[in-house]
């Protein structure tokens, strides 16, 4: 069973005291965890909570038995941190609760939010794991909806180079995702 994409943290166990592993985990989980936390608390507070959580993990030199274990732990810890944060705020008798831009939808529970965050994250990781220029072209083209001319302008490249990067990026994405079956290629084509 592939629970965390092979392109993310291919080795198990996950040793967070290794700087390279720590950096990779941080970059791969920062946005989805912020997104998830913002369902409970204000977006600004969410970012602080994530930073503090990773600071604690670094200090503890935590080791996880597998990427899946890390994933489960992170979401569990973020949710607890958010709930604690809200509780402490209430105790401070805050009169003006900051306006949260991501109010939880009634009836949608935190496990659903977790699925939301991680499905989006899988796509994000695959695209951003490409070599930097390629990744930027793919991101602007398929995620941010810029056209070739706009990308060329923004990155100071010719339109032909942008097209080349797009082609190369899609090929790389295809290779990145495990062999036999389809790839994100299809998904990217959907976005067009």
């Amino acid at each position: 069973m592939r629970t965390v994409g092979p392109q993310i943290i291919p080795i198990a166990p996950v040793i967070l005291s290794d700087v390279a592993v720590f950096d990779l985990a941080y970059k791969n989980y920062y946005h989805p965890l912020c997104f998830y936390a913002a369902k409970f608390v204000d977006a600004d507070d969410a970012e602080d909570l994530i930073e503090n959580l990773f600071l604690k993990l670094w200090n503890k030199k935590q080791v996880f038995e597998s990427p899946a274990h890390l994933q489960a732990f992170l979401y569990h810890a973020v949710r607890n941190a958010c709930l604690d944060f809200k509780k402490s705020k209430k105790n401070n008798l805050q009169l003006h609760e900051p306006v949260s831009e991501n109010q939880p939808l009634p009836g949608v529970d935190h496990l659903q939010h977790l699925i939301q965050a991680e499905v989006l994250a899988e796509i994000y990781r695959a695209v951003n794991d490409l070599p930097s220029q390629c990744s930027k072209v793919i991101r602007m083209g398929y995620l941010e909806g810029f056209n070739n001319a706009e990308i060329a302008d923004e990155m100071g490249l010719s339109e032909q180079t942008v097209k080349n990067y797009k082609g190369r990026g899609l090929t790389l994405l295809k290779d990145k995702l495990s062999g036999s079956a389809f790839t994100l290629l299809l998904l990217l084509v959907h976005w067009k």
Binding site: M1, Q71, Y75, L111, I115, E118, E122, I123, A181, L187
Partner: peptide
């Protein structure tokens, strides 16, 4: 969130992602 809970969700995450990629 118990261990069983999250394992169940991870399976769903995998299924939905690969559905989107068209390789289920």
């Amino acid at each position: 969130m118990t261990g069983e809970d999250i394992t169940g969700q991870q399976r769903i995450i995998y299924l939905i992602t690969d559905y989107i990629a068209g390789r289920l």
